[in-house]
Amino acid sequence: MENNTEIQSKLRKIKERFFLAAVVLCALIAVVPLFSVIGYVFIKGISAVNLDFFTKLPVPVGDIGGGMGNAIVGTFILSGIACLVGLPVGIFGGIWLAQFGKGKRGFFIRYSADVLSSIPTIVIGIFAYVLLVATLKHFSAVAGGFALGIIMIPTVTRTTEEMVKMVPRNLYEAGLALGIPEWKVTLHIVFRTAWNGIFTGVMLSVARIMGETAPLIFTAFNTPYWSLRVDQPMASMTVTIYNYAISPFAEWHAQAWAGSLTLVFIVLSITLLVRKFSKRVVYT
């Protein structure tokens, strides 16, 4: 009898060890490849990164050198247009939700923000295509930026809402008690207090849209030339990487790796910097 319990207790311990080890193993299988992605991109990309890569235009297959300067600039311009579309709407929307969004209307808006963020980005791309490309008969940076802007809206709205909600209620009430109109209190006191947190959310969503490809391939399209005109096709890093990556040429692959490295570097730097910055936000 005693022997039996001893065996059971041993079995329990073995089981315990086994399953906890399995958890650690699975966690390793999950985490290690994720982190090695960065190392892989770095090793593959670093050899093709040079000054030309940032300043020159793409060259045809066979020619040596060249870069994707236009695509790097294009990505920043497209993100800028996206911000013009997405930020005012997203931020004001978040403020509205935080201040007045308790009832049914608030519920519907929150719900549709969730729906909007779950719509595949390619679908948002074809929406922008119908609205701005098919009607105007040509690809344009505006159409691409517009699609990216829509993608930003739900994230920016929900972060702004959360940040504004964290602002102490008595700040708001103190403003009202001084006789300041409600909208002025909201914009000048509540919004300013929440700004640090909102900025973090905004930059994280900018980092996200910089990596988007699908909504751009038939809106902003691509161009091998320098183009700053927003009513014309515009190159972006993601679409350029895509075009190079699916080609069979080694020179283009090298360019695509360099592009991937640059893109990952930009996106991760934004994310890291913003996180570091946002840790200083303290509400009392």
Binding site: V37, I38, M210, T213, T238, A245, V264, T271
Partner: peptide, 10 residues
């Protein structure tokens, strides 16, 4: 935050 295009390329 790593763009899906990069993962696709890998």
């Amino acid at each position: 935050a790593i763009p899906s295009i990069v993962l696709g390329f890998i």
